[in-house]
Design a protein around this nucleic acid. Structure first.
Lengths: 231, 231
DNA sequence: ATAGGACTTAAGAAAATCTTAAAGATTTAT
DNA sequence: ATAAATCTTTAAGATTTTCTTAAGTCCTAT
């Protein structure tokens, strides 16, 4: 399903700029130019994230947020001019999940959008069993059938290997320390279990990587832990 | 999310008593028995409130508070024996938000805890806690993926380099002395460690700066320390 | 202008972390 | 009960990171 993002700012130039960045990342972009319009669109459309300016005519971002929050729990990112610190605080209390100050760095915008969406879908995926398929690039896990595909090839993992990979792919991009991995899978304190996990990592790599010595999916982050690249 | 409270007193009886009161109210209670321990725990755990005794061996409550305030804005409630009025005043100037005199009334403790937490969450604590993305101009750190982008380019930092840069970007604009940096990252006293930090600074600059000789992000403040410019 | 302290830079030794293979222990399936 | 599969442990080697030393350069006050 395509992710829809509603962008709301009274300055069309900013809306257009954000649209371009988000479109490039593969999101569907809806546009509004004041708070009322945003509220209307959210009633009709299925939107996963709202980016809204604080200072706007008609209905400002804060009042709009209050109204929206009455019926919708979607994540909201506020836009604000650099020094509007008061607004910042107000906005966060009103139910915004993050904020970006103008002028903003496009990469930062994208990163914050992704982080907000991830937090949101993480919470949502608990109720909807819809999310059983996780993937990153040529790597795919179907948690219903327990099938793992790497570059089109089916891969047979042992239960522990499967659980580790599932954890990492479900949270692709996020780095897990060896202890975190151990505690997540074994449900007990990790003491002297570092090699255990390391060996499983090795086995997983042997099975899913074309070249285990130079892994493209399961990467080490030195001194920190492992992650599955968000491809 | 569960609210965590760190209780720090050198008298285990008092810590245990407070734990019981707070636990009944549904809070998660962490325990420390001197200032150093408290500082350690606050670095690792996500804590929303600190209750700390003033008179303690090793590192007393006031020095601990000063240290903690360098990086953490959580509310602090001081515990003090009845007549230590001087300490009381000192503590409040040091960034404590409230104080309770021993022996205390459990109901009063709970009331003050709730009041402090309310004030804190009102002020948008989301800034640093929920946030995993920190940026300054063209510099961006995502602490979840441990990715660092400088002018759009991904940069590979070693763990120590990463931690130093994260500290500076999280507190952009603020100057840290070499000793402060050392103590924050290594968790031990900085003695003769100035060159060590300087070398890491150099390495970070080599990686994130276009021209390391004329750095635009990681600047030196002569005779004081280093900071990341608040761009 | 210059001396002295503060910062920068380079290179190599030391330490820490990760990878890998292989063998033994445990669990599961037949 | 036995074989097969899976998991854990060990340990050596490879790699990366960290620290130290030492010699530079740059600021600032006199």
């Amino acid at each position: 399903m395509m992710t829809s993002i509603l962008v709301c700012d009274d300055d069309p130039k900013i809306v257009d700029a954000i649209e371009i960045y988000l479109y490039k990342e593969g999101y569907r972009v809806l546009k509004a130019y004041d708070g009322e319009e945003a509220v209307e669109i959210l009633k009709k459309e299925n939107v996963q994230l709202l980016i809204i300016d604080i200072m706007m005519p008609k209905m400002d971002g804060i009042r709009a947020t209050v109204k929206i929050r009455e019926t919708n729990a979607l994540p909201i990112i506020f836009l604000s001019a650099k020094s509007e610190d008061t607004d910042k605080v107000l906005g966060l209390n009103m139910g915004a999940d993050d904020y970006i100050t103008k002028p903003f760095n496009p990469l930062e915008l994208i990163a914050r959008v992704k982080a907000a969406l991830r937090r949101y879908t993480m919470l949502g995926s608990l109720d909807t069993d819809n999310n059983v398929i996780f993937s990153s690039g040529g790597l795919m896990i179907n948690d219903e059938t327990k099938e793992v595909l790497a570059d089109g090839e089916e891969v047979r993992l042992t239960p522990i290997e499967y659980q580790i990979l599932l954890l990492l792919v479900k949270n692709k991009g996020k780095v897990f320390s060896i202890d975190q991995i151990y505690e997540n899978i074994w449900n007990e304190e990790a003491i002297g279990a570092d090699n255990t996990v390391a060996v499983h990592i090795r086995h997983i790599r042997e099975k899913i990587e074309i070249n285990p010595k130079d892994p493209k999916y399961l990467k080490v982050v030195w001194g920190v832990g492992y992650k599955v690249e968000n491809l």
